[in-house]
Design a protein around this nucleic acid. Structure first.
Length: 420
DNA sequence: TCTGGGGTCCTAGGACCC
DNA sequence: TCTGGGGTCCTAGGACCC
């Protein structure tokens, strides 16, 4: 059996933890740059605020209903996520952390009369007690069905107590008939439109489609999903693998046309990619740089380009990455455009240990100890104290974050104060 | 004025090999 | 009239997830 544990309105719940007076208040959390809504409490959902809503378009509604608005506080969410996950680990032999707010648990070789429902309720209570984060739990024979069960648990908290178990054929069919096809895990916008046009409305309808058709139009991925919904497990827990691509990309707080500004940003993104590569003991063999203008501004000339720069040797040195990223930027930068976003993606990632030595050019041998030292300093101080000259040394955090809450759980100076 | 960021997998077709 | 057979690797595009 698999269980899917999903935190309810995770970011909003994290913000609420330290401001309990907001318990029944509508809350939204904004993306980077305070751009759009990426999390909503149930109250905010009821007020009709859609996922991804542009903050400035909904400002009036925020004011009108006294909706509490937060900038995203990833230090807080990341730490709370770790706490939830470590509580779950005490309750399941095997766990896959699927995202910041979700985990699959696997229960193998359980006795036939094992009471999954009570066990799920115990887990839920433990998470609430130890972290204060409300979760929903779905339990079933496959991952896809545990997703279905999870949605039912979330939708009917009173009736289910936040935990729903699919353990009979009858419940499976009922659950599938209740699930709209566009809400099925693995069926996205494109496929759901296509399926709806064929009269497929529910997950159940989807399971009734001929296998060959599903295989042909939705590939083996669709077929696997169909099997999963039919109760045949095709997906197992996944163990964390080193990343195959690592990206650092940002929108700017406003438009920028000058090369120097972009160069500084791209350097900084390359440095961050280097840190991430070193953290997973990898090197990359190619680096992609992209820039583009603001696609929403139809009144401005548009420009968008990317380039992949192959490296002569695998590297994770911030210095090397910055050099090649700057080269890439020079290749694609065009004067006269108002740029809104840039990014660096390192690709073709290989383990640090098995480096292919190039006959003519080799990595700078001294970079390695230098990077180790920089990482050590920066990690111990918790801030980026050591930078390259191509980065803006004065700049710390220029992203717009006007409603940022304190880092309650990860920064001593920001810890919550309790009055006696 | 303002519209996020970071990933994965699969397939078809082209280029290339012997 | 007739023009082999069997492979691999790479890439772009499409689809999906949170």
């Amino acid at each position: 059996m698999f269980a899917l544990v999903d935190c309810n309105n995770f970011y909003a719940s994290c913000e609420r933890l330290f401001q309990p007076q907001l318990k029944r208040q509508p809350i939204v959390v904004l993306s980077n740059n305070d751009g759009c809504v990426i999390a909503r409490s149930n109250e905010a959902k009821k007020l009709g605020i859609p996922m991804g809503a542009a903050a400035f378009e909904y400002q009036a509604l925020f004011d009108q209903h006294d909706i509490k608005v937060f900038s995203s506080n990833y230090a807080l969410y990341g730490d709370m996520s770790n706490r939830v996950m470590s509580t779950l680990k005490e309750y399941a032999p095997e766990i896959e952390v699927y995202s910041i707010d979700e985990a699959f648990l696997k229960f193998d070789k359980m006795l036939p009369d094992f009471d999954f429902l009570s066990y799920g309720k115990r887990m839920r209570k433990a998470v609430t007690q130890e972290t204060g984060i409300p979760v929903s739990i779905g339990i079933a024979a496959t991952k896809a069905l545990s997703k279905v069960a999870n949605k039912i648990a979330k939708k009917f908290p009173e009736r289910t107590g936040g935990v729903y178990l699919i353990d009979t054929e009858d419940k499976r069919i009922k659950g599938l008939k209740w699930t709209k096809v566009e809400d099925v895990w693995g069926i996205g916008y494109r496929h759901s439109k296509r399926l709806q046009n064929l009269g497929v409305q529910t997950a159940y309808d989807f399971t009734q489609l001929p296998e060959e058709w599903v295989r042909k139009t939705m590939s083996v991925v669709g077929l696997r999903l169909q099997n999963e919904l039919n109760g045949i497990a095709c997906l197992d827990l996944e163990t964390p693998q080193p990343k195959k691509n690592i990206a650092t990309t940002r929108s700017f707080d406003h438009n920028h046309s000058d090369f120097q500004y972009l160069r500084e940003r791209v350097s900084t993104f390359a440095v961050t990619c280097g840190e991430k590569l070193r953290a997973q003991q990898s090197c990359c063999n190619a680096i992609m740089v992209f820039i583009h203008t603001n696609g929403h501004r139809k009144d401005l000339p548009q420009y968008s380009r990317n380039v992949v720069v192959p490296l002569p040797y695998p590297s994770n040195s911030s210095i090397t990455l910055t050099q090649f990223a700057s080269k890439g930027l020079e290749m694609i930068f065009k004067q006269g455009y108002a740029y809104k976003k840039a990014g660096v993606i390192v690709m073709d990632i290989t383990p640090e240990t098995v480096r292919q030595i190039n006959l003519f050019e080799n990595s700078h041998i001294k970079h390695r100890p230098l990077m180790e030292t920089i990482d050590r300093i920066n990690n111990s101080l918790g801030v980026k104290k050591v930078k390259l000259a191509s980065q803006d040394v004065g700049r710390t955090w220029k992203m717009r974050q006007e409603k940022l809450s304190p880092r309650y759980t990860t920064q001593l100076s920001e810890i919550i104060k309790v009055k006696a």
